[in-house]
Amino acid sequence: MAIDMELEAVLRPPEAPQAPYPAKVITLANGKRMVVREVTRADVPKLLRVVHPTLFIDKDYYNVVGARLYSELLAWQYYRVQNEFCLVGQIDGILVGMVNSRMYTAETGMSLHTLAIDRGLRIGAHLFAAKMEHHIEFLGQKEVLIVAESPIGFRRWMTEYGLEPTTIPHELGGAPAYRLTRQLYFDSKPRLVVGDRPVPDELLAVAEQELIAADESMIREKIAGLKGR
């Protein structure tokens, strides 16, 4: 697609400079080590391959989350959303989850989505925590506005962090947002935010070398986890 840069200057939202997210490594319950790192627009096509199968999983609102995340990543790739960032979790290079979010203003973050591909290891919880860590500690924001699209998300974010209810409509559908303040974040940090830095060179090299996507059936199986027959 040819890009008309003159028009692009009009169409693209202005971007604020964002501090980078320093990668970290987390030991999971099964002993495997998940590298959490920031990705760039160039990685979006790989991410979309992983998100796409979730559009058709009518379970735990994966389809809603998947469709919205897909559009947000695409918009980010083509500079149609302001100040977005995306963090991924990788085990041995394999993409096991991702989170995205954006700076709504310099002081307020707007949490977008959390998608765990490999379930049962609290990957979503770790990645959401990394997202909040980025907003509060590295971007230096005062608060993050959050909504949940699934009961699992509600339990993870609203309950575990003790988020404050607000009447502010969240940009994901207008539901009243919950707020993570710096105080709430630092109060929750000892029990919810973990990870070691720096990531050992060999681990980071594997993660950065390639974002490996599981095949579509594997992604469906890991998410749906249906047994029997």
Partner: peptide, 21 residues
Amino acid sequence: HVEMMITKEGIFDSPHSVVNN
């Protein structure tokens, strides 16, 4: 239902286990 191995490091020894477990 749960066909997943866990390790002592992952659920007990590691400081990360506070989130895992």
